[in-house]
Design a protein around this nucleic acid. Structure first.
Lengths: 97, 97
DNA sequence: CTAAGATTTCCAGTAATATCGAAATATATA
DNA sequence: TATATATTTCGATATTACTGGAAATCTTAG
């Protein structure tokens, strides 16, 4: 996995509010969680929330699914796995270098 | 582990140059790698490198050890482990919430 | 077709981050 | 002590990010 892609993902996770959002989305499972529910749960203005969601989308950490007027945010679990994989594989101790 | 602490660590890792620095430091093992070696290896100006190293230090992702005039950067492996742990534990699927 | 609900985009102000040359500091060596 | 080496701090600038109110969009329901 490309280091720039990993850095991008880590960067977007590296903000307290966004990390909270992401945590809520992940814990919501495969069905996801509505944007409105996130707003209620985290008590932040809609526009601010929307910006943060865009950031997470831009890193492909989450995706969205529409159901009527409601947009659900769903975690891209594979992305998180590959980021964790990078940290474990590329950033491990190597006595030969 | 506090979410703000994790976010801080992720934020500092979320920059391509810093992630490269961190990767080199981690792979250098417990002996660490000299600041000068990092500069040579990554070909960036000393002042820029120094700022990035400060960022990593501020997140306690690395520490330093002096040997004569040379400063070695050493990875704080426990920190990485706890960040990975957070992502795996706090950000796992939970069907009951 | 109009109104209401859900979410985003626009806009603007403010704050934080990134970059790097030059000067300063710290440490060792002659 | 003078000099060389290693690294940081200063200072200045450019860029990017964060925040949130207001307006716009998109979608469904009446």
């Amino acid at each position: 996995m490309d280091i720039d892609v990993v850095a991008k993902a880590l960067k977007e996770l590296g903000h307290p509010t966004r990390l909270s959002i992401y945590k809520s989305v992940v814990r919501a499972g495969y069905q996801g969680i509505a944007v409105g529910s996130l707003q209620e749960k985290l008590a932040i203005p809609g526009s601010t929330l929307s910006h943060h969601i865009s950031s997470l989308l831009s890193a492909e950490l989450i995706s969205q699914r529409r159901e009527g007027r409601t947009l659900f945010c769903v975690a891209e679990y594979k992305k998180l796995q590959s980021v964790i994989g990078f940290l474990q594989d590329e950033c491990c101790i190597d006595e030969n270098s």
